[in-house]
Write a protein that binds this DNA or RNA. Structure first.
Lengths: 212, 212
DNA sequence: CGCGGTTCTTAGCTAAAGTCAATGGATTGA
DNA sequence: TCAATCCATTGACTTTAGCTAAGAACCGCG
């Protein structure tokens, strides 16, 4: 697959051609819901707080109270629960995905899960204060955020339904189709956990599928 | 269990004592997020559209496009997908719960699931226009709604995690603790589906638990 | 009251996932 | 570079859930 790029600007370094700066991810995300003016884009970029984390870094621990909202600019973050000493992976977040502060924001409850970087990861970290500042500058962002959260709620519900309805083998097949990148980025035993099965079972499922 | 009621007002009819009118459910829900003035309460009650449905009535079908938002005042609504001719139940909504318009609102996508009344059910049915009207009257309702949706997203994520992490037997135990009312209101085979298992398996699980 | 349908349970069998243990390959770090 | 660790795979066995079928209990309705 070769990238199509008409008239690439000559001043851009070769290695950057066809790619985009990580901050663009967050602009692209918001642009799904509203057309942003240059002023707004600049304000957003000036008001986000970008941080880098090493592979394995833990962003949130069980019991911690946090109202931070993350957005993945580059890399991969895993959400997992600790049950009977086992890590139970319940989500993977990658480029262009928000990591909402679930029970954190309104109720200020201690987290029941962990967030850890699967790879070196670049994040935008948002606080309620950052949010309030942007809402004050652009009041209609409040409505945009609401719509975005509704959209995330829809996806969450759909994900849950998909998990409930399908068998482990079907869930693996779905993963192959919808998030094939995860297979390369994430160790098998974490994927297995995410699929709700043991690594041994995933191994057998893979073998079963192979000989078809 | 007898109800505790100090100095019940003498003017209240006997049958109403200790209970509340169904519309109150929606006021109670919003009051979890913000203190409502009498004016606001009146405006809300005047602007909601209450409808009654018979047991078995279907509110939404697969393929239909809808941006209606329901709120259960009395009764029970079941959400289910049709897969290989089988009904796969993914949610039960009861008194005091909102039924958000998932993919419906923003993306206007056809629904992948059904909504049907498990019992005779009284609903508040909200349209985007109703919403807009209330937001125009009370602009801060926009923020309240956002927080409420965030709260629902948090619950959704937690429900999904709980389903992913636990075994069918543990899921049944959880249901006993968190929503015991469903056991009486909903037929077993629908509960089984909701737990991600067959009616036969649920029957065996119940027997297994009995003799402990 | 009894009939017909629905729902729940039971049983026997199959298929799949869990568990335990061992192996071998890859990765990491000293 | 080598050793230690981690991880994926495999095998044998157990447990659990799915499937089919049949019977029992429980409706609602005439």
């Amino acid at each position: 697959m070769s990238e199509i790029s008409l008239h690439p600007p000559k001043s851009v370094p070769a290695k950057a051609r066809g790619s985009k700066p990580p901050e663009q991810e967050i602009i692209d995300y918001i642009s799904k819901f509203i057309a942003l003016s240059d002023t707004e884009i600049r304000a957003i970029l000036e008001n986000i707080n970008i941080r880098n984390f090493k592979k394995g870094a833990v962003l949130l621990r069980e019991g911690q109270v946090s109202s931070l909202c993350y957005f993945i600019l580059k890399g991969c973050v895993r959400q997992y629960y600790l049950k009977d000493g086992e890590e139970k992976t319940t989500n993977f977040y990658t480029e262009g995905q928000p990591v909402p502060p679930y029970e954190g924001t309104f109720k200020k409850k201690p987290s029941k899960f962990y967030l850890a970087c699967v790879e070196d990861t670049m994040l935008s970290v948002g606080t309620p204060a950052d949010e309030a500042k942007l809402f004050a500058m652009f009041p209609h962002f409040e409505a945009v955020t609401r719509v975005a959260v509704e959209d995330e709620l829809g996806k969450s519900q759909e994900n849950m339904a998909s998990f409930m309805i399908n068998s482990p083998e079907e869930r693996y097949q779905n993963l192959l189709e919808t998030r094939p990148d995860l297979l390369d980025r994430v160790p098998q035993y974490q994927l297995a956990s995410y699929l709700g099965i043991t690594p041994e079972s995933l191994s057998r499922i893979r073998k079963r599928i192979m000989r078809k």
